[in-house]
Design a protein around this nucleic acid. Structure first.
Lengths: 201, 201
DNA sequence: ACCTTAGTTGACCGGTCAGTCAAAGTCAAC
DNA sequence: GTTGACTTTGACTGACCGGTCAACTAAGGT
């Protein structure tokens, strides 16, 4: 009974790991199966296609991140702007740890997929888009709180949150290209200056 | 005599177009050859491998961009900070035009390749890295000029230029994920706030 | 005991992958 | 007008791609 659940979960976990370490197209279902110790027939018992596995993997991966990592980072135990710094620090430590384990900076699993697949698979593009939007929410909340507290001039919290997500993604891509997590540490704090004023009209 | 040069060039141009529209792994040398009307044997006469073609393509593509587009954008006919705005506007217009032609925002050809290939091919990663570094130079020059002119507080021009490249890349990836060039237009100007202060010590 | 259902297995499909090769064609220099 | 370097050609390799399928196993419900 848990065996089936386990097989499916193992496929999801393995796919997540392999896609993140390499790319969607470079990893075949054969390899996912080999690594997860699952026969190919079983793969297609659980998922109608590689693409559907990917969609499920994105949902599961983001759910996990949003429910376990994000609340801790954006918890109200420190002032709002410091939470953004904590978020940046978490990013830095993540890439540093990954580099120590694998020898490489792997970038953002969602950004990687977006860059590779947005023009190729509409469903995957939309899934990643909704993840990006999801990430904007707690950032926007923090910004609103900072404005209320008087730590920040009035600004377009929605647009600024989006700009910050863009900056994080770009920074992560740059760190991947440099293969150096320090890029995130040194350039990260500039994110706090990234302000979009309230649009007039 | 120019026939050979032409065949090679056609392969380069076709590869550039196809890689940009899709991805490195999704485009095979067979397809590049078909599209360029070149037989596969000829491909391997000119390039030892798909990877080497890609390296040559990156060199040629960046050389073209750096020598024809960049000088116009960063020309000294307007104040330094306005040149950054002109750069952003050029980006916006590019993605808008591409979307009108193909129906899709394709992102940054270098960023796409970096995201897909940095963990897979060291040579490609390094080539894109040197492109990113190359792009930082004119931005850094503009920043230095703006500081001299008193338009900007003193800042770490090198780090700020890198942060701006990161932001552009992130913005472009976000626009690709949204499949909407307007992301670049609305969020672009925030780049000008992206300042890294002079590091103390 | 029997049937259903979920899960598993491995052989199999047509097609494509990057890359190889030997032979033929082309053309300029001598 | 022949040589030799450059270029072109298309058939070929072995591996792999995503996906299919029918047969099989195991467990539960009745």
């Amino acid at each position: 009974m848990t065996q089936a659940h386990d097989t499916k979960q193992r496929l999801l976990d393995t796919a997540q790991k392999l896609f993140y370490a390499r790319s969607y197209e470079d990893v075949g279902v054969q390899e996912i199966c080999r690594e997860a110790d699952v026969k190919k027939g079983s793969f297609y018992h659980f998922f109608p296609s590689k693409r559907d596995l990917t969609l499920d993997m994105l949902d599961a991966s983001w759910k996990e991140f949003r429910e376990t990592e994000l609340p801790a980072v954006f918890a109200s135990d420190i002032p709002p702007l410091q939470r953004l710094e904590r978020f940046l620090d978490m990013q830095y430590r993540h890439h540093k740890a990954v580099k120590e384990q694998t020898g490489q900076v792997l970038g953002c699993p969602y950004g990687n997929l977006a860059g590779e697949m947005s023009t190729q698979d509409e469903a995957i593009r939309e899934r990643v888009l909704s993840i990006f939007r999801d990430l904007e929410a707690p950032i926007e909340a923090v910004l609103a709180e900072a404005v209320t507290a008087g730590d920040l001039e009035k600004l377009d919290t929605r647009a600024t949150a989006a700009a910050m997500v863009a900056y994080i993604e770009g920074l992560t891509l740059l760190a991947k290209t440099h293969n150096d997590p320090e890029v995130v540490r040194t350039l990260g704090p500039a994110m706090l200056n990234l302000v979009v004023p309230v649009s007039e009209g």
